[in-house]
Design a protein around this nucleic acid. Structure first.
Lengths: 215, 215
DNA sequence: CGGGGCCTTGATGCTGTTCAAATAGAGTGG
DNA sequence: CCACTCTATTTGAACAGCATCAAGGCCCCG
């Protein structure tokens, strides 16, 4: 069974999410800033984000933090490879998620949940590899440029909203907030992007941005 | 069908690898330095390394290189998430591998190949995440210390042999050869490890090494 | 109006890179 | 087995990019 932890209010009811294996899922809601699951907790649930934005983060003993990934509407998160979560997940904005128990219909490969889990794991691997390449051999400017491109591609629409703050971007990109801020400034000065305010931008010259992203 | 590319000599015959889904696999041999598969080639085969060491690497247009992972005896490699390989794979030493076509018995979840592929993907995700954390927020010294610990753990035995050169380590850790060399020197000076020659070391004080790895 | 986050901007410093050269090691042919 | 060559590794010195430290500005909200 799904046990509902302290945070997050169970919204009761059961809704279908495209019939992808989320039919029997329970819906939960989270307020901005609330934790969906914690680092080192048992990893037995999988989540589909139906509304809002989520970040997963890994905290080191000395306070250093690495953001694993950002998730938006339609993304599946909570895919973990071990019995315990390597990352924690927090809501960046008010969120609505569907939850299923991964060991639900346990026979391998049988159920829709397994198919969905398989697809989600593959997506997760692709993202982790992309992220790895970003962190391994990209300059600060390239990292920020790629991040903006990625965000612009994930939100279809002219004006892109960033649900996360500078610290989250920095911890995702392996940089400091100051460096992120400076690079954003530089990209804007170069005419590649234009910021309406610190959380909203539009791509001005995709070619410049792509060139600066270099990879 | 499996098509045998130019490099790698088909050793004919069919051998079972623990009955894990490798029963119908073909064996191939590669010489040190030979490419097993190339970046951007079609990703339809999966490999089990039965002897030797493999590295996977991703090359950027400007020559920067990121090593994805090192694989040793018993490891499965060639798990890719898209239709084309994001990485290439090269033999570090003479290698013996078993090859199967991933779309062989295609019905999802049905065959042993699928079970194996599922396990391999999960392992791959775990490794990619570990690697991501390494590259994101670790100092040069921590990276090298963790690398040595990792190698020591994967090769059971007192004296650990490194099948890769300094450039490979550097490209794996997101550092330069000079920095890697300096950090190895420092770790040895600190008494954490001892190098017999530049490719063989033993762990002297695991506690120091673990402390320096810090994560 | 005042307080507290968050973001930006500037000055300075450190970690790791780059450039350069010496040394060690591996492979080759005599 | 030795001499020679070529490559890999180590070491040193100068440099650069990003981090750190420190203000200052902006915006939200009481």
């Amino acid at each position: 069974m799904i046990s509902i932890g302290m945070p997050g209010s169970l919204a009761g009811g059961v809704a279908a999410v495209r019939g992808d294996g989320w039919d029997g899922a329970l819906r939960m809601d989270f307020a901005a800033g609330e934790e969906v699951y914690g680092q080192d907790e048992a990893a037995d649930l999988i989540y589909c984000l139906t509304k809002g934005s989520i970040r997963t983060s890994h905290l080191l003993a000395d306070g250093r933090r690495q953001i694993g990934e950002f998730y938006f509407e339609g993304d599946v998160f909570g895919v973990e490879t071990g019995p315990k979560n390597r990352f924690s997940a927090e809501a960046l904005t008010p969120c609505e998620v569907m939850v299923v128990n991964r060991s639900g219909s346990s026979a391998f490969g049988a159920g829709r949940v397994e198919k969905m889990l398989w697809a989600a794991t593959a997506t997760e691997l692709a993202r982790a590899q992309t992220h790895m390449l970003l962190l391994g051999r990209a300059t600060a400017c390239e990292r920020v440029a790629r991040f903006l491109l990625d965000m612009a591609d994930r939100f279809r629409g002219d004006l892109v909203a960033l649900p996360m703050g500078r610290q989250d971007m920095a911890d995702y990109l392996g940089l400091t907030i100051e460096t992120v801020s400076r690079m954003l400034g530089r990209l804007q000065a170069d005419g590649a992007v234009e910021f309406a305010d610190c959380r909203h931008f539009r791509v001005r010259q995709r070619s410049s941005l792509t060139r600066l992203a270099a990879a």
